[in-house]
Design a protein around this nucleic acid. Structure first.
Length: 194
DNA sequence: CCCTGATTCGC
DNA sequence: GCGAATCAGG
């Protein structure tokens, strides 16, 4: 596969969306994540202030003298309405993982986990969750992957805060048990008394 | 061990 | 330009 215009475009888009290189590679198909990363660099994209890698501290690469004072008038008539408000809060995340996490980790439009203080969810589902929380892997921020349940447990402002971490239900952000309480049928919450 | 991105360097 | 191998880190 080669980097056609369209593939590059998709690459840019996905990368801009914060997709990981491997994810992008999968979607593009025919390329590895290395290829994606390589291309990203060649394209000049790259820093997303990722916590996954240390761009700095590389004694191997020698300082490249850049005596290229290139005056660039560059009258580029490019209004480029790429106005893409990207409220990424990388630095903040490092400082206060818990709080920022809740918002960052849960895709917009996804129902927010009701916490143990669940209301009128199926008793079975609740029991299941309670049970699963005992066997949960209690992952931390960095441990979470595409395949780990991202259900938060406990108070984010407390040391007792962790994520379920069990294998997710295909396609869902949560494990089976948590999917059960997170995604309820309309019907059940519909005639909820209140 | 899983994953992340970064860099190098032969092609 | 490309990307596998490798590195560095969570």
């Amino acid at each position: 596969m080669s980097w056609t215009d369209e593939r590059v475009e998709l690459l840019k888009k996905l990368w801009g969306e914060g997709q990981s290189a491997s994810q992008i590679a999968k979607e593009l198909g025919g390329v590895t994540r290395n290829a994606v990363i390589g291309k990203v660099h060649r394209l000049g994209l790259s820093n997303r202030t990722s916590g996954g890698a240390k761009a700095e501290a590389k004694p191997k690469a020698e300082a490249k003298p850049k005596p290229a004072p290139k005056p660039k008038p560059a009258p580029k008539p490019k209004p480029e309405a790429e106005a893409k408000p990207e409220p990424k809060t990388e630095p903040a995340v490092a400082a206060r993982p818990a709080q920022s996490m809740r918002k960052a980790i849960i895709p917009a439009g996804q129902p927010l986990p009701p916490q143990p203080s669940a209301n009128e969810i199926s008793p079975e589902a609740l029991a299941k969750v309670n049970e699963v929380e005992k066997t949960a892997k209690k992952l931390s921020l960095m441990e979470l992957t595409e395949r780990t349940c991202k259900w938060p447990v406990g108070d984010p402002a407390t040391p007792d805060f962790w994520f379920c971490g069990l294998p997710v239900q295909a396609g869902k952000p949560y494990c089976e048990a948590h999917v059960g309480v997170a995604f309820q049928p309309m019907s059940s919450r519909r005639d909820r008394k209140r």
